[in-house]
């Protein structure tokens, strides 16, 4: 009879375990997917410039120094939140920021950087195919590329100034070593 008593506790124990698992699951951000491109060479591409700009953005720009690559679009609302943080990063002059203007109208993109500030060293206009090469599925996305042209870090969603100081700048320093 004594052996049987624990059986009555089993449903409560199962419930407890499931509740703990679901509570843990609630805290997960399912929008962020692990990228298989981490530690892989950045894709080969050559993007044309925005109208009126001299340079586009191509894989050759990434060689020889650590770079930040930021995919944005004028139609993307979170990108608007992110722009002050990118401007702050640009002001540190610590690392060049390259922009991939993702599936955007060039005129809208020009108006957008005119209004919100232009933190980019170079911008390439992408109709979507280069975005696939980078594994982009939603803007904004930000990559750190090391001096050998390998992707070393990816951030999905808008960067905050806290992200810049806590994650991006320390990683830049580590990758430069």
């Amino acid at each position: 009879m004594k052996r049987r008593r624990w059986v009555f506790l089993a449903p409560a124990a199962v419930f407890g375990l499931m509740a703990a698992a679901f509570y843990w699951g609630l805290g997960l951000d399912t929008m962020v997917l692990p990228s298989p491109l981490i530690d892989e060479p950045a894709p080969h591409f050559a993007l044309p410039p925005l109208p009126g700009h001299r340079d586009g953005f191509s894989s050759a720009d990434l060689k020889g120094h650590v770079s930040v690559v930021n995919a944005f679009a004028s139609w993307c609302v979170p990108c608007r939140d992110e722009q002050p943080a990118l401007n702050a990063l640009a002001r540190t002059k610590r690392v060049p920021i390259y922009g991939i203007d993702y599936e955007d109208k060039p005129a809208d993109a020009l108006a957008w950087i005119g209004a919100l500030g232009d933190p980019y060293t170079r911008i390439g206009a992408d109709s979507g195919q280069v975005g696939i090469d980078w594994g982009i599925y939603g803007v904004p996305e930000t990559f750190l590329v090391d001096a050998d042209g390998r992707i070393r870090y990816k951030h999905v969603g808008p960067l905050t100034e806290a992200d810049i100081h806590r994650t991006i700048l320390p990683l830049v320093a580590r990758l430069e070593r």
């Binding site: 298989p36 491109l37 696939i132 980078w134």
Partner: peptide
Amino acid sequence: YIRSRYGDF
């Protein structure tokens, strides 16, 4: 190719 860009998901 697409899996190499976006992973198993």
